[in-house]
Design a protein around this nucleic acid. Structure first.
Length: 262
DNA sequence: AACAACCACAACCGCTTCACA
DNA sequence: TTGTGAAGCGGTTGTGGTTGT
């Protein structure tokens, strides 16, 4: 008999609807926490489950009643599944423009602090924000940076090509895409749509950050080395302050520290 | 129709932090 | 003060669907 047979098998991979129901039932009864015990305890919810779930739901999930289905999942897996998918008030579906802008602004301020960012988006999870950033916004921001680099390089180019590119930037076509022979019209439309939303404020933020000392720099000055609370408070006040100027150009004088809305 | 490439999202893994005995 | 287990977090990988060839 090998070790593998002695260990309880922890199931991995995508969750099935019946597993979701078991976990949901467990958490609704016991509350969140003690995730390590979910796997052991959830088996007894078979009877509870069968009493409370409508028969048509059971049949639709093709559950053989004779099978005792305790959750053979690790505590971490259960916790994540609950937190990211089953928890009440989880908002599903695409991000709104406001949410996108908030994510980008927060990411610029906080970096990859996904839980902090998600904390300011009701109904959104850190995993969702992180995935959304990696699949949508990161590309868009990189694309914006490339665009900026291109435009700075263009200053060294001959006047005709730079004039053409400037025309593209001001008009309804993208200079990078329009000069890319591999881009299809459909792809160009898609990329154009992606790049249109938040680049304006990104450029503004880059300008603003030139004047405002980053909170991270303050941290690096070891003002609050051993105590997170002041840092958090500082972030909060900074974000609150920053939020006042959304959509505005803010200038803070580098020496006097006096801010003014342009 | 078949296959490959790509994309979006769910889930896992490893590390850190926290709480408590 | 230290050890230990639980929870939290961010990076990475896996999976399934879609699109292009």
């Amino acid at each position: 008999m090998g070790d593998e047979e002695l260990k309880p098998r922890i199931k991995k991979g995508l969750w099935k609807p019946e597993e979701d129901l078991i976990l949901k039932t467990y958490v609704e009864t016991h509350g969140e926490g003690n995730w390590a015990t979910v796997s052991a305890k959830s088996g007894k919810y078979q009877s509870h489950y069968l009493q409370n779930i409508a028969y048509d739901m059971i049949t639709s999930y093709v559950l053989p009643i004779s099978i005792a289905f305790s959750l053979m999942r690790g505590g971490k897996s259960c916790r994540l599944r609950w937190k990211n998918y089953l928890r009440p008030n989880i908002k599903r579906g695409g991000m709104t423009e406001e949410e996108e802008d908030l994510i980008i602004r927060m990411h610029k301020l906080l970096g990859n602090r996904w839980s902090l960012i998600a904390g300011r988006l009701p109904g959104r999870t850190d995993n969702e924000v992180k995935n959304y950033w990696n699949t949508h916004l990161n590309k868009r921001c990189l694309h914006g940076k490339r665009k900026n680099m291109e435009s700075s390089n263009h200053q060294k180019e001959d006047s005709s090509s730079s004039k053409q590119r400037r025309h593209c930037q001001l008009g309804n076509s993208n200079p990078l895409l329009s000069t890319d022979p591999l881009s299809t019209p459909k792809e160009m439309d898609r990329k154009k749509e992606e790049s249109s939303v938040s680049e304006t404020w990104i450029e503004k933020a880059q300008t603003v950050n030139y004047y405002i000392e980053s909170p991270i720099n303050v941290m690096n000055n070891a003002t609050f080395v051993n105590d997170d609370e002041p840092i958090t408070a500082y972030f909060d006040s900074f974000l609150w302050y920053e939020s006042l100027f959304v959509g505005n150009d803010v200038e803070i004088h580098s020496e006097t520290g006096v801010e003014s809305v342009i």
